[in-house]
Write a protein that binds this DNA or RNA. Structure first.
Lengths: 199, 199
DNA sequence: CGGGATTTTGTGCGTCCGGTCAAAAAGTCG
DNA sequence: CGACTTTTTGACCGGACGCACAAAATCCCG
């Protein structure tokens, strides 16, 4: 790799993070290239040079979102009882508040948003989303398998089926929450599910 | 109301149904007015004259979608054991195949799609979606209350919490299914949930 | 210090978008 | 039959979109 040439005047990672916030809060279609140019304080050409076109930029942001989420998920489940950790994962699906900023509070799970908006017509998006789903279920199923062996979780269903159910629930919760929901009822629903998983 | 004037040359209800299919399969943003004009075989001005702008047209289509869905939901739950009916509701969230046509197979639940794409920036869409959620949970909770009294469903959680959990699951399932999912695992997850609700 | 490589900057392009409008057509009713 | 009302038709608008490009700027390396 050539190490010569004019150096980039902006931090690529930071730009991607800011773009993630914009894309997350507004969605793909509703975020124009001009919006990105304004929010990232760089010129049109620089953006295209660094990230390719808008679609690739978005997909890179989604990948960053998932990588961050996966890291937290693994950490949350790596030791201790599984059910309380899963309860947290469900109750706080996207940990949205940690990303809140002046560009508007992101809402819902970005994987879910991408599923709804891009997947039907974009094979690349479909792959990113499908991979994220697969990793989620795999990580959760592994944890549930341990927990079943420990007697913490019921063996009435396979860990795979339970993990799939948790994926549905977390995606549904993230989605429904965008339209506003009663927190108490939502938490009661989460508790009902967690209780049902208990051995 | 004046009963005079040139009569409309197309069936308004049928046009709305076709528009529903288009919007359902492609989403709001990805469906252009031109797409609608082509698919509905009418002129631009006629469309605007009959339905107002694109946004109102879409919202009318969503309302039609929900009305249809609600009718089926009520029918499915009105008598007989509740859990098998709920299992069907979950396993076949949007009864997509009945609407399949040449314009492309619709995917996912249109309420969910609307939630993801429009709700954050459209108060009217938010209201339609929130109302649909409320009606779903109310209808399902009523059925679960009966089933709890009959000893069919566990009383470990309130009917409201159980209904909310079912809303999350059906929305999540519809969404995740757009990215493709393994049918067997998905059905196992549904069964796990239904079993957990059993008394 | 100079040549090559790379990024920045700003402008410009073609396209498609949602939406409007005026005139013609097709009915109803007195 | 003629005035009135509504819909149809098809052209048209301004604007935003994604994207490309050429020239200037900046840094590395010899």
């Amino acid at each position: 790799m050539a190490r010569t040439g004019r150096p980039r005047a902006f931090d690529k990672d930071q730009a991607l993070e800011r773009a993630l916030l914009l894309f997350w809060s507004r969605g793909y279609g509703a975020t124009s290239v001009q919006d990105l140019v304004d929010a990232l304080a760089l010129e049109r050409g620089s953006l295209y040079g660094a990230f390719g076109d808008k679609r690739h930029f978005y997909l890179a942001a989604v990948q960053l979102y998932w990588d961050t989420y996966e890291r937290r998920l693994v950490t949350a489940l790596e030791d201790g009882p599984v059910l309380p950790a899963l309860r947290e994962v469900l109750a706080n699906p996207a940990r949205a508040q940690e990303y809140a900023s002046d560009v508007g509070v992101p809402q819902g799970c970005m994987i879910g948003n991408t599923t709804a908006e891009l997947v039907p017509q974009d094979a690349d998006a479909r792959e990113v989303v499908a991979r994220s789903h697969a990793r989620f279920t795999q990580i959760v199923a592994d944890a549930l398998r341990r927990a079943q062996a420990d007697g913490e979780v019921t063996q009435d269903a396979t860990p795979e089926a339970q993990a799939q159910l948790l994926l549905f629930t977390v995606q549904g919760l993230s989605l429904v929450s965008r339209a506003g929901l009663d927190t108490a009822t939502a938490l009661a629903a989460v508790d009902a599910l967690i209780d049902a998983l208990r051995a």
